[in-house]
Design a protein around this nucleic acid. Structure first.
Length: 254
DNA sequence: ACTGGCTCCTGAGGGC
DNA sequence: TGCCCTCAGGAGCCAG
């Protein structure tokens, strides 16, 4: 994508998580993608005057295709490039979104309240402990709060808490700095491993080349309710916490 | 200031 | 074989 010139934009379905800006095609046509970057789970296609911002939600994908190809059901936005290739945004559940991010003035409202990147040095045990001070929210919901740290969804929060030996319902403000250090390390480790494996495929996830991720084969807790704990052998417990499926070991996680 | 519940949507999977 | 119901989830928003 880097260096590609956008020659056309077609929006077939603007009803995504946020309605697609009717002026998007007008704004983007004629621009060149200088570089790709990312903030939290928002993908940024930077041009000289601003950025195309895409969120994949949970079922979204982007693929570069070479015409002729048949537009599939749920192919919502197409960008035609000067090379002749077409970038396709496909999202059956429409939890994803497509935005225009002006380079000035200020930050986009969706980005302004976001916490640090989990793989950055700003994210560590001391930071988590400071953020958690006085808070009673269950630590799993705390960890999934984008204002605390970005990028930690349900699966990786479940895995990290298992690795750190922390009970998902424990109030965030009642965890020691030492245990938060362990948790921060667990988050970094789980994310690094998942990225290495190419992501986690639950149902229909595929990457930019159509390949599934393989991290699900490595999951220690998520999706393993009633199965034996890989550490102590006792049965993992499945609960619902903050409207999310949660699995933990009642013996190892306190 | 916090917290918990609701919401969008489609497809998979289970029960009958 | 096929239908119908329930559940799954990212994350912003809102009521209490």
């Amino acid at each position: 994508m880097e260096g590609q010139h956008i020659t056309g934009v077609q929006v077939f379905e603007p009803r995504l998580r946020w309605p697609v800006d009717p002026g998007l095609a007008q704004t983007l046509t004629g621009l060149t993608v200088a570089r790709l970057s990312r903030r939290a789970k928002y993908l940024l296609f930077e041009t000289g005057s601003g950025a195309l911002m895409v969120h994949l939600g949970m079922s979204g994908s982007l693929q570069l295709k070479t015409p002729p190809f048949e537009r599939r059901r749920h192919d919502h936005v197409l960008w035609t490039l000067a090379s002749g290739a077409v970038l396709v945004f496909h999202d059956p559940r429409r939890f994803g979104s497509v935005h225009w991010l002006p380079s000035a003035p200020g930050v986009h409202p969706l980005l302004v309240k976001l916490g640090p990147e989990p793989l950055s040095s700003a994210f560590d045990g001391a930071y988590l402990a400071a953020q958690a001070r006085g808070r009673k929210v269950p630590v799993k919901a705390f960890l999934m709060d984008g204002a605390v740290v970005v990028g930690v969804g349900n699966i990786y929060a479940t895995e990290a808490l298992f690795l750190a030996g922390i009970h998902p319902r424990r109030p965030a403000g009642r965890i020691s700095v030492a245990r938060y250090e362990r948790l921060a390390e667990a988050v970094k480790g789980v994310l690094a491993q998942a990225i290495e494996a190419g992501g986690t495929t639950l149902r229909d996830f595929v990457d930019g080349t159509g390949q599934p991720g393989y991290f699900q084969q490595t999951l220690r807790a998520y999706g393993r309710a009633d199965q034996p704990c890989l550490t102590c052998g006792s049965a993992l417990k499945g609960i619902r916490l903050a409207q999310r499926a949660t699995v933990f070991c009642p013996r190892c996680q306190r």
